[in-house]
Design a protein around this nucleic acid. Structure first.
Length: 404
DNA sequence: AGGTATTCACATGAAACTATTCTCTGAGTTAGG
DNA sequence: TAACTCAGAGAATAGTTTCATGTGAATACCTGT
C-alpha cells in the first residue's frame, strides 16, 4: 500500500527556490531594519531613562500597517532588555497585541494577559474584573521596578472598551508606591488619538512618533535584502522585486504585504517546478492572497451569517438576471426568513441582520451604502464585492455548510 | 412654480436578556486516626 | 478531623432581543402668483 512519495519529496527538496523561507514570514525579525533609523533612534532616546531605573514618558506610535512600528519597538525593547540585564536594573517590558484572539476586546482579558506575562495566572472567567485589577496592581507593586507595557494595535482594543480603562491605567502610577509604569501604544489608525478622551490623549501622547509609509524605492531595498537571504541565487530578478514593491506601494506601502506577496509567488513558482520567479507569479500570488482571505472569511462565519450571505448572493444573481439593479436590507431579510424556514433555523430579528450586513461591509465581502429613497425610506443599498472568479467556490462552501 | 411638511423603511444606539463557562465558598460526606 | 465532593451564588462574555430615537429626500400638500 506504500505510495511512492519519495520522488515528490526529493524533487521538493532539490528544487526548492528557498534558502530560508522563514525570512519572508511576517513574524521574522531581521537584524537590520532599513529606513527606520530615525524612528528607532527616537524611540530609543525616549526609552533611555529606563536604564537609569526611571520610568520613561508614555509613548504613542502610529502609522499604517506594515510600516515597521512593531518591529522597531521590539528591536529597541530587546536592546534595552540586554543593557538592563548587564546593569542589573529591575525592568520589565511586556509586549501585548490587543488584536490576538486570546486577548479579545475586554478589559478583563487584557489584564489577565498582562498578569500572565508577568508570570502569574488568573482564571479565564469567574472573577470580578475589579479583583483582577487589584491582583495586577499587587503583582506590579510588590517590588521596586519599572514596568513598560507595549500595547500593539491599541486602537483595536479601544473600539470596544471605553477609554476610561486606559485612563485608569495611565494614572496607575499614583496608586503604586514602589513600582512605576509606562505605557507605549501602537496604533494603525492615524486618527485614533483624535477620538479619545482628551485626558487620555494628553497623557498617552506625551511623546508621539509617526511612522510614514514606505515608498516604492524603500520597499525595494527591504525586499532586496530579505530576498537575498531567503531565496537561492538567481531566483528573483531585479524586475520582480521592482514590480513587487510597486504593487505593495500602490496599496499603502505595506511592507508585510510585499513580503507575503514575494513568498507566495515563490511557493507557487516552486510548486510549478520553475527555476525562478517571474512577474506573472506575482500576479498569481496577488490573486491567491485575496482568494484565500475571502474563502477563509466565509468558511469561519457562524451559520446565521452564512445564511445572510447566501441570501445576498442569491439576490445578486437574481438582480443580474432580471437586470433590475440593486437590492436592499429588506429584501435580504425577507429572503433570509424564507431560507431559515427551509433550513429549520431560528429567525433572527431584522435589527440583528442589519448588524450582520454592516459587518460584511466592514469585512469587504459586500459593499453597502446607506441611501435614502425619499418617501420610500432609508436603507442600505447592497452590492456583493466578491470577485466573480471565486464566487462559485464561495457558493459551494455555503451550500455545503448549510446542507443545501 | 416654489416652498414646506410628511412619511417611509430602515439605520443607529442603548440597555437588557440568555446561555454558557468558569471560580469560589461552604455544607455535607467520607475515610483514616 | 482533615480531605474530598458537590451544589449554589456570582461573574464575564458573546450573541441576541427590545425599546427608543434618528434621518435624507421623494412625495403630498399648501401658498400666492
Amino acid at each position: 500500500m506504500a505510495i511512492k512519495l519519495d520522488n515528490i519529496f526529493n524533487s521538493a527538496i532539490e528544487n526548492s527556490l528557498f534558502k530560508n523561507k522563514n525570512i519572508l514570514q511576517s513574524n521574522y525579525n531581521p537584524e537590520s531594519i532599513l529606513h527606520r533609523e530615525k524612528q528607532i533612534k527616537l524611540v530609543a532616546s525616549i526609552m533611555a531613562p529606563l536604564l537609569r531605573g526611571e520610568r520613561c514618558s508614555n509613548l504613542f506610535l502610529y502609522g499604517k500597517t506594515g510600516t515597521g512600528k512593531t518591529l522597531s519597538v521590539l528591536y529597541v525593547k530587546d536592546e534595552i532588555d540586554k543593557r538592563a540585564k548587564d546593569l542589573g536594573i529591575n525592568l520589565k517590558i511586556r509586549y501585548l497585541n490587543c488584536k490576538l484572539k486570546k486577548v479579545s476586546d475586554t478589559e478583563y482579558r487584557i489584564l489577565a494577559e498582562l498578569i500572565e506575562q508577568l508570570g502569574e495566572s488568573v482564571p479565564a472567567t469567574g472573577l470580578p474584573t475589579q479583583e483582577v485589577y487589584s491582583r495586577f496592581i499587587e503583582l506590579i507593586d510588590k517590588e521596586k521596578q519599572v514596568v513598560v507595557i507595549l500595547f500593539d494595535e491599541i486602537d483595536h482594543a479601544l473600539k470596544k472598551i471605553s477609554d476610561s480603562f486606559l485612563y485608569t491605567l495611565l494614572r496607575l502610577n499614583s496608586e503604586l508606591s514602589q513600582a512605576q509604569i509606562s505605557i507605549v501604544g501602537i496604533s494603525n489608525d492615524i486618527t485614533f488619538l483624535d477620538n479619545i478622551d482628551p485626558r487620555v490623549r494628553s497623557s498617552l501622547g506625551e511623546e508621539e512618533i509617526l511612522f510614514p509609509t514606505y515608498n516604492a524605492i524603500q520597499l525595494q531595498d527591504i525586499l532586496k535584502e530579505r530576498a537575498n537571504l531567503a531565496f537561492k541565487e538567481n531566483v528573483v530578478s531585479e524586475g520582480v522585486i521592482a514590480k513587487c514593491s510597486a504593487l505593495a506601494a500602490r496599496e499603502h506601502g505595506d511592507a508585510r504585504r510585499a513580503l507575503d506577496l514575494l513568498r507566495i509567488a515563490g511557493e507557487l513558482a516552486e510548486r510549478d517546478g520553475q527555476k525562478n520567479i517571474t512577474e506573472e507569479y506575482l500576479d498569481k500570488a496577488n490573486k491567491k492572497i485575496e482568494r484565500d482571505k475571502i474563502l477563509d472569511l466565509v468558511e469561519t462565519q457562524p451559520t446565521q451569517c452564512m445564511v445572510v450571505l447566501y441570501s445576498i448572493i442569491l439576490l445578486t444573481n437574481e438582480s443580474k438576471k432580471e437586470d433590475k439593479g440593486s437590492f436592499f436590507t429588506g429584501d435580504v431579510f425577507n429572503l433570509y426568513q424564507d431560507l431559515c424556514n427551509k433550513l429549520k433555523l431560528e429567525i433572527l430579528t431584522q435589527r440583528r441582520i442589519s448588524d450582520i450586513i454592516a459587518d460584511f461591509d466592514m469585512l469587504g465581502l459586500i459593499n453597502a451604502r446607506v441611501i435614502s429613497k425619499g418617501r420610500h425610506g432609508r436603507t442600505r443599498e447592497i452590492k456583493l464585492s466578491i470577485p466573480s472568479n471565486i464566487l462559485p467556490k464561495v457558493e459551494e462552501i455555503l451550500k455545503e455548510s448549510l446542507n443545501l
